[in-house]
Every structure is written in structure tokens, then in C-alpha cells.
Design a protein around this nucleic acid. Structure first.
Lengths: 212, 212
DNA sequence: CAGGTGATGTTGACGGTGACAACATTGGTG
DNA sequence: CACCAATGTTGTCACCGTCAACATCACCTG
């Protein structure tokens, strides 16, 4: 049923929805959410405009699907960086793993601004955030759940008290997301390169200290 | 030269640029940056499409002007809330004033999401952020400078050490902006009302503690 | 005070986009 | 094998940004 990419297709594509989302992700990478156009993704997929309407209700629906994919990419980077942490000792390690996902978040925003903006551009996300019921987007790549797991780790090793654990996601996430946004689209857009790394350090430091 | 609003105009508007920006602000209030369209603002101003091209290079340019106005509105609310603080004692007062502008920021985002999104939607801002040279948008209503002033106050009263002052804007601003963004367009979009206020408290608390 | 000229607003056109409707093709199912 | 629902296509429409050509007028110059 699923056709190979090089195979000649005859009228029916066979895997159009996936092809459209993938095309959208590619367009979003360089052009951000504004580049995820129904006609553009259809062209990219070698299909007529309007074919997408068999798989998405409208452009917003397509954008949501593409955004979800971008969010997954972000989660994947966080998982990857978290796994690379080599710190020894339970407390040091847990702290390093938290910092790693924070830095991964910011790095993702800076190296893939199109994807980052697209991940947060959709007006409708299914199964993200605290109210995540077990549906799409496997839990391992959900940034919110990844953050929660790292914070739980901190509690387990005794580096974070249960009271401080309460709502800690909001603080950590807000700080990291806020810095990313300000660096990308906010007034920190033109911050000199040399000042960015120190700024990241300050933000992560404040969060770290604030959670103690 | 400047004509009254009710006066019949004859061919030349007299104050079109301002009228267009004002129309843009009005449209942005309910529709966000996506509603700031050249043709829409021109209609609203009772002028033909294309008239705007005498005052703005393109739609992006218009959006930047509208965004700047929205940013000013945000700054005005911050100033207002900061001035209302009644806490006594220099340290308590300085702390309360910092918290007040943080809450004002978040309140603005929540009560005027269209304006908030528009303020940060422009790809080009003149004279915002750290590199602000003395140009447009009076310094009193520049959110970044307002924040800096509050942090300076904290140093003056001895509630913040000079070392911690370094880059403190980044931490405070990121946390507050991040929470606003996540509540508006991020995965916290559907956070139950009852959990929002506690979340704000946690975020502000972490920043406060992190700066000590 | 008259005429002209540059700034400002209008009309018309073009290509691109989202969306709807009607039609074409086809894979699977009875 | 015939039918049908799913899937893709063609055609159309309204709206948008933008450019070019034209119209009007405020103001300056003489």
C-alpha cells in the first residue's frame, strides 16, 4: 500500500498525508509557519492543489500536523542531549540532565528557528501540555513530559524538595521558552553573538537557584 | 493640518499614517497580527487600498509600526501598575514594583492576546532591546528599559547584588515572557483557569529566589 | 497672486492563496 | 464482476499584496 518514493504513482498517491506533512516540515524549516501553504505542500508532493483537502480540513489543520511534527523533533533533540550527559553522581547527573534539555531547547530554537516557530504557531495542539491524554505523539518525545521526568529525577535524588517540585515545570519551561522566543522574535533578536551564551547561563542559573 | 475625525475629507486625508496605524491596532486587538492587512486597514480608514503605500513600504512595514504601538501599550500598563504599588520600606517596595511589572506583562498577554502577539510578531523592531539607541518609542514605555529600571532599583536598595544584576533582565524577562507565550500559544493554552494564578506565582517566585 | 510641482490618494491589473463544487479515477468489497 | 466510497483533479471565486498609471491637491516660488 505504501509506495516507495521513486515509484511512479497512478492517480492515487498511496501515502499522501504523510508526504504532505513531510513537505510541510521541509518548507517550515526555511520559511517558518508562513511557508506551510496548502498549495505549496501540494506542489512539493507532486499533487494538485486541493488534494490536501482529502486529508486536512483546512490550512490550519495542516499547520497543526506539521507543528506537531516539529514539536516531536524538539523532543527528540532533548532526549538525545539528555542521554549524552556523562556527569557522575546522582545529584550532579540529575542536575546536568535538566540543564541539558534546557540547552537543547534553546539550541533547537536557534539552529532551527523555522521549526521552532512552527511548533508553536498552531492554534490547536492535540495532546500536549499537562492535559495530555494518551494519544498522538509518543510520550517519549513530548517536551513537557520530558521536562517532568527530569524534575522527578531531581526529587528522587533529593536535589529538589517535593514542595518546590510543584509547578516547577512552569518555571523551568517558561524561562527557557521565553529566552528562546526573545532571541528569535523578540527584542533580543539582535543581541550580539558574544552575549548570547552568557545570557543562557544567567537564565539557567536563576532557574537552578530558584528551584533550590 | 491635522483634521478632526468627523470632518469631511477631500481627497487628501491629512493624517493617514496615524489613522492606518490606529486601524491596525484595532484590528490586531481582536485578530492578532494576521488581521493587520493592508487592504483591511485601508478600508477601516475609509481610504482606497494602495493609499497605505504612500506611508509604508509594504505590509511588513505596517505590521512593524502597529507592533511598536502594541509594545508601547504593554509598556504603559507596566508603568501604571508599577506606580500603583503601595508597599512600604525601600526593599519591600522595590521588590513589589518588580513583581508588579511582571504581573502586568502577563496580564497584558492574557487580557489583550491580539496586541501581545502583534507586539512580538514583527520581524523588524527599531530601537528595542539592549541595543536601543535614542530614537522612536519614548524610553518610559519601553518594556526592556522599564525592567532595567526596576532591577536598578533593587540594586540601589541593596536587595540585589551587582553581580546578580548582570544579565538579570534576561532571566526575569525570559520567565515572564515565556509563561505568557506558553499560556497564549503554547501547550499551556488549555491550562485550567484555577491553575494559572498558582503557575504565575511559582514562576515569579523562582525568579525572585534565583536573583537573591 | 498665479502657476507648477511634488506629495498624496485612486483605479486597474496581475499573480498567489484558501476554499468550495463538480468531476474523474481507482482500489476494495459485496 | 459490478459497484461504491475514498482519493485526486479541474475549474472557479473572493481576497490579499504589489506594481503601474493616473488624479487631485497643498504648498512653494516667482
Amino acid at each position: 500500500m505504501v509506495r516507495g518514493e521513486l515509484e511512479e504513482r497512478s492517480y492515487h498517491h498511496g501515502n499522501l498525508r504523510e508526504a504532505l506533512v513531510e513537505a510541510g516540515v521541509e518548507l517550515a524549516r526555511s520559511g517558518g509557519p508562513g511557508a506551510v501553504l496548502l498549495r505549496a505542500v501540494s506542489r512539493q508532493a507532486g499533487v494538485s492543489h486541493n488534494a490536501a483537502y482529502r486529508h486536512f480540513a483546512n490550512q490550519e489543520d495542516l499547520l497543526a500536523a506539521v507543528g506537531e511534527r516539529c514539536m516531536t523533533r524538539l523532543g527528540e533533540l532533548m532526549v538525545e542531549r539528555s542521554a549524552q550527559v556523562a556527569a557522575r553522581g546522582p545529584v550532579r547527573r540529575a542536575r546536568a540532565r535538566l540543564e541539558a534539555i534546557g540547552r537543547a531547547y534553546i539550541d533547537f530554537a536557534r539552529t532551527e528557528p523555522g521549526w521552532f516557530r512552527t511548533a508553536f504557531s498552531s492554534a490547536r495542539h492535540d495532546a500536549e501540555g499537562p492535559a495530555a491524554d494518551s494519544s498522538a505523539g509518543s510520550a517519549e518525545t513530548n517536551p513537557y513530559l520530558i521536562l517532568g521526568a527530569r524534575l522527578d529525577e531531581l526529587v528522587e535524588v533529593g536535589a529538589l524538595t517535593p514542595e518546590r517540585r510543584r509547578g516547577a515545570e512552569f518555571a523551568a519551561w517558561s524561562a527557557v521558552h521565553g529566552l528562546s522566543s526573545l532571541l528569535l522574535d523578540g527584542p533580543l533578536r539582535d543581541l550580539p553573538e558574544a552575549q548570547i551564551e552568557p545570557a543562557i547561563g544567567v537564565v539557567l542559573g536563576v532557574v537552578n537557584r530558584g528551584l533550590e
